[in-house]
Design a protein around this nucleic acid. Structure first.
Length: 207
DNA sequence: TGCCAGGCCCTCTTTAGGGCCTT
């Protein structure tokens, strides 16, 4: 397992709803491989959740029932995605949400993954404490990053989360004069008391 | 959307409640 932030998989799910424990399923996955701050590979697939999606989800994602009816099953798509993600560490915006769906879909196909998740939202809450809020769209604007596509589609959100992640790391390196920010340090940062963020990041400088 | 989730995080807190985020 690579303990660094140089190569990670950034992923995003569109789903039928908020809770896999209450029967919600994935309908789209988008992911990119981010290597040294550059997107070097992409994965995007719609998938058929086995039942119709409601009008809110159609409106929210612009993914319609007509678009899903002929798609491969979640099981087929997630098997393919398992090969794409390999053993890389994982990033998602509000990762607890995407992790729940990844775990639920992988459980159905008896797959596991060795990578660890880190949440771009939790890190952004600490690094960009003055942002108006910490939604992905707001953070893109706050960090002066040009959106690359439509929000609420999986690949576009994954790409934009990746760009945000790269900017966060670049900003940390510049502000705290750190050459290397290990993935494990970013996980630790995501759990650090917001008032102690400076102290923690300066402690990395001294190493 | 509606009110079906869950983890984080703040505060008028910790024997709790409610907003933020994700779809």
């Amino acid at each position: 397992m690579k303990d660094n932030a140089n190569t990670v998989v950034v992923l995003d799910f569109e789903t039928t709803g908020l809770s896999p424990n209450y029967g919600d399923r994935a309908i789209e996955i988008g992911a990119v491989i981010l290597e040294n701050g550059t997107i070097v590979d992409r994965f995007q697939k719609l998938m058929n959740p086995g039942r119709p999606i409601d009008s809110f989800i159609e409106q929210y994602t612009n993914i319609t029932n007509a678009m899903l009816v002929d798609q491969n099953s979640c099981e087929e798509v997630m098997t393919e995605f398992s090969d794409f993600m390999g053993d890389y560490n994982l990033i998602a915006h509000n990762a607890s949400f995407d992790k729940r769906f990844l775990d639920a879909e992988f459980r159905r196909i008896n797959k596991n993954y060795p990578g660890k998740f880190c949440c771009s939202m939790l890190v952004a809450r600490r690094v960009y404490q003055n942002a108006p809020n910490h939604k992905l769209a707001t953070l893109m604007s706050h960090a002066n990053i040009t959106p690359t596509g439509d929000f609420h589609r999986a690949l576009a959100d994954a790409e934009m989360t990746a760009l945000l992640w790269a900017k966060i790391i670049a900003d940390i390196k510049e502000k705290y004069d750190i050459m290397h920010v290990p993935f494990s340090s970013l996980v630790k940062l995501s759990k650090t008391n917001k008032k102690l963020v400076d102290k923690y990041l300066y402690s990395l400088t001294e190493k």
